[in-house]
Write a protein that binds this DNA or RNA. Structure first.
Lengths: 338, 338
DNA sequence: TTAGAAAATGAAAGCGCTTTCATTAAAGAT
DNA sequence: ATCTTTAATGAAAGCGCTTTCATTTTCTAA
């Protein structure tokens, strides 16, 4: 393997121009004459020139990379958002640097630090709830940051998302309209996850408005199919048994896990029990009888976050808050109260 | 937002040592006296020092980042492999740079180039089948590269994986042992995907060994639940109808899609039709009646690739080829021929 | 033509670090 | 105490690029 790699200086020399001209020819073609630009391009191609990102970043003080810090990449909604971000950035010559923290706050700080050290020009974070230290380092870095999947009640931060509370209340409302009065909830861990917290609050509020409550039938667990199923098992195995006709879930994975457990036990859905999810992942539509859920345009969230970041990096202003539409999708897991 | 960020020179000054000493104190603590190191560390903490990755990369000629180029991140097996790589790298101070190409060859080259320009110290690729140009740029970059999810028949490249052909043949064998003689296949696109190609070849070989063939009942489609379902629909809607008792699928997403379509149509699985998948994603175990599939230790593939890369970067030798164990998991979708 | 303005180019100074290489301080040997 | 040997530190030279700033070339207008 030959380790020699042509530098811009080599290209410039080969093209018979100065280093600065070569640099301009590549970065700002408008600043050089057409024939010069061509000479440089030819030389670059001839030598197989590949720009040196670090040098470029050091000199220009921008890395043309954006960092995204996700709870996990092993969830379809984040996977599709990631794809969307990467695509959008790619079309503007930016690269996405990805980091996941598995819902662990200390890991989140560590990986965010790592991204910042790598010199990302901007950051995409999920949710508005983060350790104080994280806000500090981001602030200190002085780079634009977009918070996603949420709105910021303080109106201070830049975010693209929707009201998890309202959306969750909407799903609950749907069940109320079907006549359900006895509710159970499968929630994600609320401790350091504002989306989970808001969704749970939404259910509580919608119920409270009717003088109802799900207290004693609320379980928190990790967002995953397996955990959803296990939580459903725990819920059904309580002494009280199945003392509810409606189950509101913090996301589709939990809901589908619960649904599978019901199918296993022969509990008819929606005959005996109605279930709602949240997110509308592909599987929600595919798995019979089809999961009633709140549709969230995940890819759009990612895309908008990327676009906004690019705008801000270009020095343009964007609205502090950008809402994406969420929508109730009624499928087969919800029906009238038995 | 204050944009001032302390440089190492500031730390050195504040600690009352020279720039070089400060640098050593951070990078090679063994080279400085204990008290000096402490002085530097204190100063760094005091100033909130954050190393400048680009400068470091430029000076040291290594970026402490590894790039991974995946077909997609929207597939549980790649998601978990990614997590594993990131975790392993993180524990050694490396960061993962991720890029996905959506199974499009030209995108693959583009994003790989982008990673190389960003100065990754090593690369993880999926499969052994890549455009010639990609091999060239990687070669030219002169960095270590690990090919995953496959073995390299030429024995030339570094890879960690398994024989897709043998594994696929193993699944087919299982169906043959159950008495099946009429096979259909749902394959991924084989054009530029050696895993899909090898898996299909494995089925063909296993069948041929018994004088059988699935010709005319082989469909290629995109690896996804929805596409699997659509392909199954197409297969069943042929004039010939359901002229097979066993369906071998290129991965679990296709198999589960097919399974859902069967459930929709009231085709009993495995009563009337047996189905096998490949990968053993979480859903395979959860979705009744449980998908018979080849288990692939995805996270382990990622982890090993990361470990090997780190070893090689540390100047140590590793075996050119590392096999991970794959295993047939018999669940509820396969049964004796009707 | 030729002065003056505009466009294109080149020279050179860094960007913030790492890393020789030379120097000084500490430690060990005589 | 003096001379080596070794450990610790500092000075300075880049790493490969971008970006002022100064200079040269080209164009426009009188």
């Amino acid at each position: 393997m030959r380790k020699f790699s042509a530098r811009l200086a080599d290209v410039a020399h080969s093209a018979g121009v100065s280093l600065s001209t070569a640099s301009r020819a590549m970065a700002e073609p408008g600043l050089v004459r057409n024939d010069t630009r061509e000479k440089v391009e030819k030389a670059a191609a001839r030598l197989g020139y590949m720009p040196h990102g670090a040098a470029r970043a050091l000199a220009s003080r921008r890395s043309r990379t954006i960092g995204a810090v996700l709870p996990t990449v092993d969830n379809p909604i984040f996977a599709s958002a990631t794809q969307a971000i990467a695509r959008e950035l790619g079309s503007s010559g930016y690269t996405l640097l990805l980091a996941a923290y598995d819902y662990a706050s200390d890991t989140e700080i560590t990986v965010t630090r790592a991204l910042l050290e790598r010199g990302v020009d901007g950051l995409v974070l999920v949710g508005a709830d983060h350790p104080r230290e994280l806000f500090q380092v981001v602030e200190q870095a002085g780079i634009p940051c977009e918070f996603t999947w949420t709105l910021d009640s303080s109106g201070y931060r830049h975010c693209v998302g929707f009201s998890n509370r309202l959306a969750s209340a909407r799903a609950t409302q749907h069940l109320l309209e079907l006549g359900h009065r006895k509710f159970a909830v499968l929630s994600g861990h609320t401790a350091s996850n504002d989306r989970a917290r808001e969704r749970l609050a939404g259910v509580r509020e919608a119920l409270a408005a009717r003088g109802l409550s799900a207290d004693g039938r609320i379980l928190e667990t990790t967002f995953s199919l397996g955990h959803g199923r296990a939580a459903m098992r725990a819920l059904l195995d309580r002494p009280a048994g199945r003392d509810f006709t409606a189950l509101v879930c913090g996301n589709d994975l939990l809901a589908l896990g619960a649904l599978l457990e019901c199918q296993e036990r022969g509990i008819r859905v929606p005959g005996e029990l109605s279930i709602t999810g949240f997110d509308d992942i592909e599987l929600a539509a595919e798995l019979p009888p089809g999961l009633t859920t709140m549709h969230v345009p995940s890819a759009e969230v990612g895309r908008r976050a990327a676009v906004r970041l690019l705008e801000r990096l270009a020095g343009r202003e964007v609205d502090r808050e950008e809402q994406v539409p969420v929508e109730l999708i009624v499928r087969g897991t919800t029906g009238p109260v038995p």
